[in-house]
Design a protein around this nucleic acid. Sequence first.
DNA 1: GGGAAGATTTCCT
DNA 2: GGAAATCTTCCCG
Length: 199
Amino acid sequence: MKYNPILKSFFQLPTLELAQALLGKLLVKETEDGLTSGWIVETEAYIGPEDRAAHSYGNRRTKRTEVMFGPAGITYTYVMHTHCLVNVVSGPIDQPEAVLIRAVEPKDGLELMYQRRNNVKRDLDLTNGPGKLTKALGITMEDYGHSLTDLPLYIAEGNVITDISKGTRVGIDNSGEAKDYPWRFWMTGNPYLSRKGKS
DNA sequence: GGGAAGATTTCCT
DNA sequence: GGAAATCTTCCCG
């Protein structure tokens, strides 16, 4: 199973459009253990300067958010608690915008995913959450700042999705008015959405 | 250098 | 449904 990374120009879309365009694309990670991949089924947009929920709110530039100010199409990995979350940086340089990948649908390397995630019985539970999919695909801080058009972690062309739902984001109740922005996108009716994405 | 917060997951009652 | 788990970065002193 081999894929070609998507063209770099794909990431030049405005963040809100990119968040929707990413749905149906293939997220691929290659390691020495093998290849794992999944269709992206749920995303969230984070528009730095005007988004209180974003790490880069008010153009707050730190070592952690540094990569969000970089060019579109690179990976922004972030560790919280025990888990790792993965974003796709978007927007032009010096504009801290990104798209959080919240859920994917497993495609290749199912065995490897089960191996990485203990006690999982169903395909449905492998990647239906931001922290879950990173563990299943083996995404870590090693991938921080890495381009998504190059191995070992990249986006590949996928299906065209026409049925897209949108709504408010999750887990940012302390972010004031920003919590009401409808910047979460998902594939309507897909069973691999994150827990809170099924509302 | 220390304390606090955070875009989550999992287990237990 | 609630609370704990557990780690990196940030901010203040």
